[in-house]
Design a protein around this nucleic acid. Sequence first.
RNA 1: GCCGGUUUAGCUCAGUGGUAGAGCAGCGGUUUUGUAAACCGCUGGUCAUCGGUUCGAAUCCGAUAACCGGCUCCA
Length: 653
Amino acid sequence: MSLSGGRKTLQEREAMTDIERLRHSCAHVMATAISRLWPEAQFAAGPPVENGFYYDVEMLHRVTPEDFPKIEAAMQEVVTAAQPFEKEVVSRDEALKLAEQGRLAALSARPAPSKFKLDIIRSIPDGEPISLYKNGDFIDLCAGPHVADTSLIRAFKVTSIASAYYKGDESNPQLQRIYGTAFHDAAAMEAYFLALEEAKKRDHRKLGKELGLFVVDDEVGQGLILWPPAGAILRQELQNFISTELRKQGYQQVFTPHIGKLALYKTSGHFPFYKDSQFPPIIEKESLDKVVSENCSCAEMTNRLEAVSARFAGALNERTGSNMIEQESVMSDDKLLDGYLLKPMNCPHHIKIYASRPHSYRDLPMRLAEFGTVYRWEQSGELNGMTRVRGFTQDDAHIFCTEEQVSGEILGCLALVKKVLSTLGMEEYRVRVGLRDPDSTKYTGDAANWDKAEAACRDAAKTLGVPFTEEPGEAAFYGPKIDFVVRDVIGREWQLGTVQVDYNLPVRFDISYVTAENTRRRPVMIHRAPFGSLERFCGVLIEHFAGAFPLWLCPEQVRVLPVTDAQVDKAREYEASLLDRGVRVTVDASREKLGAKIRLAQTEKVFYMLVVGAREASVESVSVRSRKRGDEGVKPFAEWLRLLCEDIAERKN
RNA sequence: GCCGGUUUAGCUCAGUGGUAGAGCAGCGGUUUUGUAAACCGCUGGUCAUCGGUUCGAAUCCGAUAACCGGCUCCA
C-alpha cells in the first residue's frame, strides 16, 4: 500500500524493513534529482515496492529511458552530498501553506501549488501527525521513516517508466510512474540484476516457444492456448498424476459440456451479475431472426436476455428467502430471449449431476471431479502467456457434504496439494483465508451462513500446520475461500489453487439430501481447484524447472544417438523396446557428429541420451548420458531400461 | 479497458527516404563422425494489417491488430 491508496498505519510504518526504508529514501533522492532537471514536476506518491520503489510524477516532459542516465547522475550528486534527512512535524495549517506555495516535493517555492501533496494533506485524518522530510533544499510531505543521510544509498538505478492514475482511479489524472531500485551495496544490486536475468531465461513464454510447449495464435484468439505435442504430454502427465491422487481420495470423475443455457447461470447468479467478465451469450438462429424481425435494439435484446420469467423470480426469491430477483428484471414469457453461455465455471453443471437423483446422508461426501474448461473475458491488457488467459482448464471438483464434514474435506484438499507439490519439488507455500468485507454489498447469501462458512475456513486453516493469514475482502461473492500461494525455486510467489465453502448455490438450486431422521437437509458445497488451472500451473512449472522437467514429465525422455550410420539399426531396436515400455523416445539418425547430436538433445532438454557406437552395439549396451549429470558410463541396455521404468513409475525427480 | 513501447525469414536480430541483410533452423551435396556446434551450396520475406505523404516508404504520418512493461480488474 502506498500513500496514494490506503495510508499505512503507524505500525506498518514502524515495521518498514531496512531495505524498504532505504528504497523509500531513494525515492526522495530521485524526486530531488527530477526536480533539479524539471523544476515544474509535480509529485504524488513515492513508496517502496517489492524489489524497489517508484515515484509518481506529473510534468510536461515525457521521461524516456534515454533520460535515465541523466536522472541517475543528478541522484549521484545528491548521494555524494550526504544530505541528512531531517524530519519536522508541522501543523496542518503550516503543511497546507507550504503546499499552496508549491514548496512541497520541490527544491524551492514555485508558482503552482503542490497539488497532489495538498490533496494528500487533506486526506490525512485529524489527530494524525503531519511530518515533512527535508534533504538539502528538497522538502517533501512524508510520514517516513528514512535513512540518516543520502550517502547511505550506495547502489541505485532508475529501472523503468509506466503510467498510473493518481490514486489508481481512472477518473484522476494520469501520472508518469518512474521505477527505480536501491540496495545497501553494489554487490547486492548486482545479484538482483543477475536474478532478473535468470528469471528472464526461465520465462515460460520464451521457453514455451523454444520447446514447443504452447502456442497462442492471433487468428485463434488472444488468451486461447494451443497445446502442441510436447505441451500436451506435459499436461496429460500432470492430469494423469492428479487423477490418480483424486481416485485415492474418493473423487469421482465426471464430464460436462463447454456451454450451458443462460437460465442455468441465472439460477446460479453468474448471469447477468458477471456478464462483463464473460464471453457474450450465444443466441439461437431462430431467436436471433425473431428479434431482428421485431427491429429490436441492441439494448432491448440485452434486456430480454437478462430478464427472467415471473415464475423463475418467484421460485428463486422463495428459495433464498429474499428479493434477490427484482421486479424490474421480470418479463413476460413471449418477450424473453434465451441463449447459451460458454461456461465461466463448472459448478452449475456439477450441481445438476448431483441433483439428477436423490441422495442419502450415506452418499456424502460426494466428490465430483472434472478437468473442466472455462471461459472468461479477461481484459486484453491482462492477458499473459499461460498464466492469464481467456480459456482455461481447472482441476476442478465440487464436494457435496454435510456441515460437519466441511473441515475434514478442506484438510483432504490440502493433503492433495501437499502430495502434488512435494512430488514436483515445490515444498514452500502459504495459505490465505479470504473473508468477506463487512462494508461491501457484493456478497450473496445470509449473514448466518457466512459466519458458519468463515468459521469453518478459519478452523480448517488452523489445523493445517502451515502459516496462514486472514484477509477481509478477499472472499468470493458466494463464500469465503482458502487460497494456496506457492513459492517457486527462485523465490517468486504464485497464487494457484483455491478452496471455497459455499452455502449459497445449494439454496439457489434447491438441492438436498435425506438425513438419518428421514428429513431433508441442504448439503454444503465446497468448490476446490487446488492447482487453479492447468494452463497457469504448467506456466509456473515451466519456470520452476526452467524447462528441464523431471523424467516423468519430460516430453522426450530418451533420445538414442547412433555414433555412425552402422548403429542406426541397433538404435531402432532399442527405440522399439523403449516404446514398448511406454517410454517417450526418438532416434537421432542424422549424419551429424556425436557432439552435435548431444548439443541438440541437450538444448532440447531431453532427459537421457543413449550413445550407441560399435562397442556398445556389439554387447547389447548403451553409453548413458544424462541431461543433468553428463556421461554416466556404459550399461547393459536391458538392465538400464528396467531401472528407467522404475524411475518413471515412481515419478522420481 | 487505460498509458507507454514493440512488430523485418521458422527462431534471434541488423537495416533512419533510393531495388531487403546476417547467424541459426530447413533443403541438397561432401564428410562416417565417441560425449555441447564438420564443410560447401541452395531455398526462404506483401518488412503485422489497412490507409496517407512522397518521383520513390521497412524507414515519415494516421488507424487497426497482436505482443511487452505498467495501471485497473480477476466469480
